[in-house]
Design a protein around this nucleic acid. Structure first.
Lengths: 189, 189
DNA sequence: CGATATGGATGACAGGTGTCATCTGAATAG
DNA sequence: CTATTCAGATGACACCTGTCATCCATATCG
């Protein structure tokens, strides 16, 4: 049942897409190779034609998830690349702290969904994760004013707070979730 | 090999203590019943004399871990209970954002270590988690000044930021970890 | 003291895991 | 047009999971 190279590339994309979603929904360990392949419309046996190991798939999926996140910070319709735009950042923050984001981890920020899991993963996976977080922070810092160090530090604090808040909201009951999200939507104290 | 009731109580305490540590170190799913029992010096078979299900053990372990955290916020040597004490809070924040905390998840804050996992757990576990987080936030708010709502909101923001920062630090390389921790140690922006 | 209750050990179970060897048939290379 | 390659399917493997039935020896009760 051989398939054309273009078809193989499509298969690989589907696998990564499925992995990126299932990892965020179920966690790194609970998203099994068989589940991912089944979700991509394939059987588990062909997996190792695409990746040497599950860890390699996790890294590719993390990269894809971070790319989606960074794209949300760099809207293509902005006229001047690199120009600070408070509206872009506040829109990002508002959507990050929304109920919709809390309810849909599979499409949301990998930091909020996977930081805990990745902390227990191998060094290569952590390296991939770190580069992804750096890209998000750089994108946020671009939208801030002040010295480069100030902008970067404020971006770190804001991302850490938002990711922590969404993780807490997902791990709590609806009332507690609403409290933490509301508190974090308020201007800094 | 029956054992006295006092001995059984000790066994139960050891199981909860081992579970609280292994859960934070390995995650909810990766910390198996057999591992916990072995760590407590028992074999896996006797587990169900202490807990109806693994989920019940997870809830007991979460409760124990949150108790340790709250104790750190309410030092017994303070003279006046309930009195606001900026030093207690800043000491808590400093130790929370320390390298030692990042390196020892098994003894650290369950929010930073387990929020992601608990978000995928059952409703009962999430309820236990939410009550624990609320206790920490209440303890932090006690040390702040301002209206009750202001204090609570600031405590939520501070805890979310710190938990997010430690989770990111654990999931990254040392340089990235140092950056996010440094940024979050700075006064609010 | 004797009878019973029960904490813990042993071992099994059904199901899931990552990984790989093998087969097959269609896409390529010559 | 034939020969080779190789993506994917099938199925197996050794191991680990939560749960439970069973047995044993001792703490507790009458």
């Amino acid at each position: 049942m051989r398939v054309s190279q273009a078809e193989k590339e499509k298969s690989r994309s589907r696998i990564i897409e499925s992995a990126a979603r299932l990892l965020r929904e179920r966690g790194v360990e609970a998203a099994s190779v068989a589940d991912v392949m089944s979700d991509a419309g394939l059987t588990h046996g062909g997996f190792y034609r695409h990746f040497d190991t599950k860890e390699a798939m996790v890294r590719a999926a993390l990269d894809s998830a971070f790319n989606q996140m960074v794209d949300g910070l760099n809207p293509v319709d902005r006229s001047f690349a690199g120009e600070a735009s408070p509206d872009v950042l506040s829109a990002f923050e508002q959507s990050y702290l929304s109920d919709a984001h809390v309810a849909a981890p599979g499409l949301g920020c990998p930091v909020a969904a996977l930081a805990g899991d990745v902390g227990r993963a191998g060094e290569d996976v952590r390296e991939t994760f770190a580069q992804g977080v750096r890209r998000i922070v750089a994108g946020m810092a671009n939208q801030l004013s002040g010295s480069k160090a100030q902008r970067q530090a404020r971006a770190w604090r804001q991302l850490a707070m938002m990711a922590g808040a969404v993780a807490i909201a997902r791990a709590s009951d609806p009332q507690t979730a609403a409290e933490v999200l509301d508190a974090c939507r308020q201007p800094r104290s």
